[in-house]
Amino acid sequence: MVASLTEMLEELKEVFIPTVAKAEEDVEDVEEDEDEEDEDDEDDDEEEGAVSDQYDTLRAQCQETEEGKHLVHHYMECAERVAKAQEDPNYDELEYKEDCVEEFFHLNHYINDCAAPKLFNHLK
C-alpha cells in the first residue's frame, strides 16, 4: 500500500516537474488523468495517518485546486520556454537567459498560503 502510494506521488512529481520539454497538450492530458488518481491518494493518506510528510500531502492538495493548477500551468509554460531556449546551440552566449523563478515563486506563494495554516494541526 505504502509502496504504491509513494510510486503514485513520484509519478505526480514527474508530471509536474519537467525533465525535458513536452508538448503542452500532452501535459494537460496527463494532468487530467492524474487528478482522479490523486484524489484517491489523498483519501488513503488520511486513513493511514502520518506515513508521508504532512506538509507534502497538504501542498499536493493545494496544488490540485483551481488556482494551483492555473499557476502550475504558468510555471510549465515558462519551463517549456526555457527548455526550448536551451536547445539553441548558442545558448551559452545569449545575453539574456530567462529563468522561471518568478513563476516558481507565484506558485509556491499560493501553495504556502493555502497549506501553512493547516499544517500544524497535523503535527504533534
Binding site: 545575453e95 539574456y96 529563468d99 523563478v101 515563486f105 506563494h109 495554516p117 499544517l119 500544524f120 494541526n121
Partner: peptide, 22 residues
C-alpha cells in the same frame, strides 16, 4: 535594470508563510 539581477524576486527570496506556532 535590463541586465542586473538587483531587485528581482529571486534576490529577496520567497517570503515564508505564517505558521501556527504553539
Amino acid at each position: 535594470t535590463l541586465s542586473a539581477d538587483a531587485l528581482t524576486a529571486a534576490e529577496h527570496g520567497l517570503h515564508p508563510p505564517k505558521f501556527n506556532w504553539p
